[in-house]
Amino acid sequence: MLARTCLRSARSVAPVRNVASKTASRSASTSSSSEGAASSFTMTVAGSAATAVAVGSIAWYFHLFGQEAYAMTPAEEGLHPTSYPWEHLKWNKTFDHQALRRGFQVYREVCASCHSLNRVAWHALVGATHTVDEAKTMAEEHEYDTEPNDEGEIEKRAGKLSDPLPSPYKNDEAARAANSGALPPDLSLIVKARHGGCDYLFDLLTGYPEEPPAGAAVPAGLNFNPYFPGTGIAMARQLYDGLVEYEDGTPATASQMAKDVVEFLNWSAEPEMDERKKMGMKVVVVSTVLFALSVWVKRYKWSPIKTRKIVYNPPVKH
């Protein structure tokens, strides 16, 4: 129906089309026609003008939208982190669990005084960095609120494996009050939550200069760190050589501690990484074979169709 309507309308515009095609054929054959000279000049002018308009509008559009927009000054952006060859970020590597254990030690002895890690429970450490008994012992060192008892009072009890790691402050307000207005962020997902991930955290932890460079404005109560967006960070430098004594005897340099704690925080952000990569490897292997097989089967099924020849036997004349 629609097609028929279209056809009818096409027929009604046929004269117009004829005129248009005539014009087109004339301009296409200008070089050979007698009125060529003037017409070729107009065509050149028109063509050049059209080109100029096209180029100009593209240039204008690019001027408006094509360029990268920098909303921030480089200082506000922060120095981009160096890309480090993290072993655990390779596609076929798990976390180094010895490093996780060291990293947890660093977190517990250094970071935990201000930062919470409340999406990690004690039982998560079991089988990753600590044995059941170690985790139980550590959990029992902390007190947690009980559920309301018969009188509705909330009492204290020793921690259990099912409890999350304790927060250093009761709530965000208490944390702000204790840190002159700055809230130490929860570190559970910090590796996923910051641009640059592990690289950024490592650079942030180890990138505090001895003193701010000349000309840098450091507001009162803040510290200078070139990697932190805005360069003024409320956290002071925390990691110094020998701050922690590792139980496995690894020399506790500042960069070693930073590396370990960053790896630990990466684990806390994605504890499933080991399993995920292992499963990914299996999936890739099986899918590759499956893909090759399916290509073969496709060709197998199509080969009669692709190689057939249709023979036309014309009718016999009588």
Binding site: W296, W302, S303, P304, T307, R308, K309, V311
Partner: peptide
Amino acid sequence: LRTCARQRLAPIAATSMAAQRRG
């Protein structure tokens, strides 16, 4: 892959030969 897929071709060739003969 082509080598693998080729093995089905024999019977088809035979049919088309027959068609040719009829032609």
